[in-house]
């Protein structure tokens, strides 16, 4: 009896060892992303700290010019922030209504066959390389817009913003559709049974019930627009300018980082460190938005159960 017990314990132990190895490996894979994030934050923090030893915080936040590559150096982040804000705002103004209406159509109106065709087609938009959108903005959208707006520069925030908007439509529509789809059908029935029409049911019962999910989708889309690089690097220009005029060349935070890291700025100089300070700023903005989005999405899950 004791013999059998010992043997069975041994096999258990052997299996336990194999299981532990697999568990460790899986755990390591999971932790890898954590280390990557930690590594990124560490590098950003280190270089940003080095930057702010030479440039005071007040110069960064209260100056209104960004000219670190010129002889007369200014380190005010606002022109880059304004550029990012402008292109992102244009993108959202275009993508939110378009994406939301597409989501409403797909979830509430489209036939099953229409859905089967439209949904993948829409999601294909998200798969187009952003480089292609950049060229699209530069050689197609800008010339077209120039026919309507004659004083539009060759590089401008407007056409980049429009193309970012097109790029994030599928993100908004797909996530919003999930949120709308998750609204229990009993609510729609409740509204119809009260004598509500289709539009009233959708806009006053279904959409409010899906609101936090839609808000989460919106914030994720904003953070995607803020981080978008290739389109603005190609089509928005390289002129940090504190303006909200969409017709003139500007520069976004991301485009500035591309400009410096692709150019001949030597490493370990103050000019070089500026990109880490800008990247840290960008990181803070998108990280904050992702946090808010997570919180909203969680509330939305609670509300829909």
């Amino acid at each position: 009896m004791s013999d059998a017990t010992v043997r069975s314990t041994k096999t258990r132990r052997g299996a336990g060892l194999g299981e532990r190895a697999i568990e460790l490996f899986l755990g390591a894979c999971g932790v890898l992303s954590l280390f990557t994030t930690a590594g990124i934050i560490a590098v950003l923090a280190f270089e940003t700290w080095a930057f702010f030893r030479e440039v005071p915080l007040s110069a960064f936040f209260f100056d209104t010019e960004w000219t670190p590559l010129f002889a007369d150096k200014h380190f005010g982040i606002w022109p880059l922030l304004a550029g990012t804000f402008l292109t992102s705002a244009i993108a959202i103004v275009l993508a939110l209504p378009a994406g939301l209406l597409a989501a409403i159509y797909l979830s509430e109106f489209a036939s099953a066959r229409m859905r089967r065709v439209l949904k993948p087609a829409l999601e294909l938009l998200a798969g187009v390389p952003t480089l292609v959108y950049g060229y699209f903005a530069l050689v197609l959208v800008t010339p077209l817009l120039q026919r309507v707006i004659p004083d539009l520069s060759g590089f401008n925030a407007l056409s980049s913003g429009i193309c970012i908007g097109i790029m994030i439509i599928p993100m908004i529509s797909s996530l919003s559709e999930d949120a709308i789809y998750a609204v229990p059908n009993t609510l729609r029935e409740g509204a119809y049974a009260l004598g509500a029409g289709r539009l009233a049911t959708i806009f006053r019962v279904v959409l409010p019930a899906a609101a936090s999910g839609i808000a989460a989708a919106l914030i994720l889309a904003v953070s995607r627009a803020v981080g978008e690089t290739m389109i603005v690097a190609i089509a928005a220009g390289q002129q940090p300018r504190l303006t909200l005029d969409p017709r003139v060349p500007i520069e976004t935070m991301t485009a500035y980082i591309v400009q410096v890291s692709m150019g001949d700025t030597p490493a370990d100089t103050l000019e070089y460190r500026t990109i880490f300070a800008v990247a840290a700023m960008l990181f803070v903005v998108t990280f904050a938005m992702n946090l808010v989005s997570h919180r909203l999405a969680r509330r939305f899950r609670v509300a829909s159960t």
Partner: peptide, 29 residues
Amino acid sequence: RRAGMVFQKPNPFPTMSIRDNVLAGLRLT
């Protein structure tokens, strides 16, 4: 509107207050 309905599972509108739930039918129409 002439024939109201009550369902198996209570389905008050989750985004509305008690008062707004009562008024929902009139508002929606």
